[in-house]
Write a protein that binds this DNA or RNA. Structure first.
Length: 467
DNA sequence: TTTTGAGTTGTTCGA
DNA sequence: GTCGAACAACTCAAA
């Protein structure tokens, strides 16, 4: 075969790219193609920060391709039509892509495969859906047995990783390609530089500097103890197999903390696989509760309270810090995600889908599988959900995971001079203290929009009624 | 088929 | 201040 199309979707990398290596093995020439799908661009789940990160990633990928004798062809339109046109233009005999298991992607790929020679390969998950099943062939819905079965499979090894090709022979003829739009101004504050090289640099830095303390620090919001690789995994600027191989590598050290940290981080990668599998096997979770009875929860859905949550004006410092971090940077600490999700669903009794959509619009790493899984876990509606009476207390969570208020003060500057003992409950400051610290509750910072203790018991009653 | 052990990440209360 | 129990049963997975 003379030409294969490498259809790039969530695999913006050249290293360990099975779609690319398969294309190179099958054809003399490979044409890398990106398609802007109007359906996805118009989705309410797309936001400008993630879009900007994607565009920057495409530019970086194009540069890497050009350094290897190739280039990125960019088109816009309905993928089946665009690909049919490209096959006609190039005479390519096959389209090869990394499989995306989310519901829209599967429908899209089915439509393509009906008319065109499409071949899908795994790479988005470490173990693809269908490979981790119970003895009777059905999928797992509880994490721990899933992870046991996952661990029983052959582990990815460094030798399995496909090296970066040194040269990518690409058809030389004239082929129309759109320019990649320039990054909107908004992206300036996003602390993620797009691209494969940056992903590898972060991986090395994390493994070398942070893995030993990961198990102890990963929940601390005031410490940069996490890998911050999620945006790169989201767009395949690093493959999850590369991450897993690095984790296994760190597990061979003699330092017990490093081994524990690596195991803990690998577990998070397995959670990522788990939610990819859940969405693949149960696509209805995208629209409703995994457990149907929880669709009957009587959400209060107060628009004013939702707006306060979105803008970081709830009066609960740790919630507000997290929501402002999200708005400013497109990222939020994992512990903070749980706290604000618990607050939205359990304190405000607002439908978890509202929070899911807000996260998707603002997160650079927004991924349908992980985001949906996390929200349903927090709301108590999902597979393997937390018991509904497990309601986070935003004050004690703050005290535990941001004890000196470093995280809060960074993102809620009006609380900068509030003493540590009040930093997570500033409304408890005596008026004289408010005066001295320059933070008058109701003037400089809002009073709490709900009384946690009161709404907690209301929510318990509401959940108990449908459980 | 039945039984048994277990289930990411919490909070509150009372001794 | 610390610690264990209660929260509330239910579903899942595997023997």
């Amino acid at each position: 075969m003379s030409t294969a199309i490498w259809w790039i979707r969530r695999d913006l990398r050249l290293a360990d790219n099975v779609a690319l290596s398969t294309a190179l093995a099958q054809a003399k020439q490979v044409l890398p193609v990106w398609i802007f799908d109007p359906v996805l661009l118009a989705s309410p789940y797309v936001g400008e920060k993630r879009l900007a990160f994607l565009l920057a990633g495409l530019r970086t990928l194009d540069q890497a391709l050009q350094a290897r004798g190739s280039r990125l062809i960019v088109r816009r339109g309905h993928p089946p039509a665009v690909l049919a046109q490209l096959l006609a233009e190039t005479g390519a005999g096959v389209i090869i892509a990394e499989e995306d298991y989310s519901p829209y992607a599967r429908r899209r790929d089915q439509a393509v495969a009906q008319a065109l020679p499409l071949r899908l390969v795994n790479g988005m998950a470490i173990q693809p859906p269908g490979r981790v099943l119970k003895a009777d062939g059905s999928p797992y819905t509880v994490f721990t047995p899933f992870s046991k079965a996952w661990h029983a499979l052959p582990r990815p090894r460094a030798a399995d990783l496909v090296p970066t090709p040194t040269h990518i022979p690409t058809p030389a003829g004239e082929l129309a390609s759109e320019l990649i739009p320039t990054t909107p101004q908004q992206a300036a504050a996003v602390p993620f530089m797009a691209g494969e090289a940056e992903a590898q640099r972060r991986l090395r830095y994390f493994i070398d500097q942070h893995i030993a303390a990961y198990a102890a620090n990963r929940d601390q919001m005031d410490i940069d103890g996490t890998s911050r690789l999620s945006p790169y995994l989201r767009f395949g600027m690093i493959s999850p197999r590369q991450a897993a191989v690095a984790a296994y590598g760190a597990m061979t050290t003699t330092i017990p903390e490093a081994r524990a940290g690596a195991a803990s981080w690998l577990n998070e990668l397995i959670w990522r696989d788990f939610y990819i599998h859940i969405l693949a096997h149960f696509p209805a979770v995208r629209r409703g509760s995994f457990r149907e009875k929880y669709d009957a929860i009587p959400w209060r859905n107060d628009e004013t309270q939702f707006a306060a949550w979105c803008s970081g004006q709830t009066g609960y410092p740790v919630v507000d810090a997290a929501m402002r971090q999200l708005a400013a940077t497109g990222w939020m600490h994992n512990r903070a995600r749980m706290i604000v999700a618990s607050f939205l669903t359990k304190d405000l009794l607002i439908d978890w889908r509202w929070g899911e959509r807000w996260f998707m619009r603002h997160l650079v790493d927004g991924d349908p599988a992980s985001n949906n899984g996390g929200w349903q876990w927090s709301a108590g509606t999902g597979t393997d959900a937390a018991p509904y009476f497990r309601i986070f207390n935003p004050v004690s969570q703050g005290a535990k995971f941001d004890p000196a208020g470093v995280y809060v003060r960074r993102w809620v500057p009006e609380l900068a001079r509030v003493p540590d003992q009040y930093i997570h409950a500033p409304w408890e400051m005596h008026p004289a203290v408010q005066q001295v610290t320059g933070c008058i509750i109701g003037r400089d910072y809002p009073p709490p929009i709900v009384d946690h203790r009161a709404v907690r018991s209301q929510t318990l009653a509401a959940y108990r009624a449908v459980a």
